[in-house]
Design a protein around this nucleic acid. Sequence first.
DNA 1: GTGGTCTAGACCACT
DNA 2: GTGGTCTAGACCACC
Lengths: 122, 122, 122, 122
Amino acid sequence: MSFEFSNETPIYLQLLAVFRDQILRGELVRGDKLPSVREIALEYGVNPNTVQKAFSEMDRMELTQSERTSGRFVIASDERIALLRKEQALSDARDFTERVRAIGLGLTETRELIEQIWEEQK
Amino acid sequence: MSFEFSNETPIYLQLLAVFRDQILRGELVRGDKLPSVREIALEYGVNPNTVQKAFSEMDRMELTQSERTSGRFVIASDERIALLRKEQALSDARDFTERVRAIGLGLTETRELIEQIWEEQK
Amino acid sequence: MSFEFSNETPIYLQLLAVFRDQILRGELVRGDKLPSVREIALEYGVNPNTVQKAFSEMDRMELTQSERTSGRFVIASDERIALLRKEQALSDARDFTERVRAIGLGLTETRELIEQIWEEQK
Amino acid sequence: MSFEFSNETPIYLQLLAVFRDQILRGELVRGDKLPSVREIALEYGVNPNTVQKAFSEMDRMELTQSERTSGRFVIASDERIALLRKEQALSDARDFTERVRAIGLGLTETRELIEQIWEEQK
DNA sequence: GTGGTCTAGACCACT
DNA sequence: GTGGTCTAGACCACC
């Protein structure tokens, strides 16, 4: 409930990330049913079309599948989820290290930075 | 010396990052003159307006200052640069840790990931 | 509804002033929607880019905020508006008194001048 | 001798204002000799062309006149100076009141503002 | 229909 | 040759 969308990133992508992350985190597992498009739309105060777009994208990634009448379910196997999780982590990490190297940080400095932030966010 | 722009991020922001990073890395220091708008436009194959937009943004960050007829110069003091570098690093790190935590990584796993990527990028 | 732009000041700044003043005067209040970039461009006979530049500047001043698909809205609170109004008035007054002092006017003379002009403009 | 030029206004106009104001203030009177272009250029650290442009403008306003070999002199009569001073003051005052009216100030508020600033600048 | 970005190219004042 | 401004007009993603 209550969620602030940033206006830099398309809402449908922010919404996608919310559910994708629930799956990658293991909170939603194979066979689990997702809330309906209408429910989500209400809950997040967005247009149903926007939710639809986010969900179609998840279908396309083969994380979920919509069963015509009964709703939308997680279909990805644990292995596939683990793989996607690894890929996502790698991609995030590559972006990050590229950025900090570009401003001249070294490995040690970066490591310390991560640990400091980690504490702070706990 | 050419350069590949990704199409997810506006060119002007990518251009901004190139020069901002040169300053944050200490390659360009206070008093140094930046190439002219037209030079950059030619070199990177973009429209002068796009360069102009990137540079205005750097002026606004008080990293540079344009001298109407003689060019654009770095004006930020070393202290200010150090501060901005720190802020940039923190912001990048916050984004990153938030992302990996969202997909369930722990500190140890993250640390290892960073080190692995660091090797790979060397 | 047309409008005459002076050619000493960039059009985008004059346009900025028009809308900024509407907000500072209280004609546009928090939550109000501004006309679209294209509407303004038509109405004032300028290029949409010019309007865009003026409006981006208002966003930067945190008077307005653009909602990617629905338009641009006034976001400044009444307090913030009152503050900006005060600052603007002070800045205008400082410039003015500096100018008249530079040509040797005294306070009394200045006061009379203001009152005379005020009548005249009524 | 130390002077900060703003980069929003052409230097030659800022320079012009310095000398024009000396005349309008009565510090320089009819018959007085102005410093040479070269002296001014050195003193203010600007290009002699820039000084030349400012002075030509003053000649054009019939405030000064250059005597081929002996230098440049104030030629305006006291009446003419008084007139220009009045005009300048009126123009400054019109701009100012227009601005403050645009943001909704009343005469009383404006009068108080002026008095406050006047104190402050004393 | 909304804002945002970009190109191509012109023009201007200033030094 | 420098930065700054502006036009005309296109294209894009989003909702």
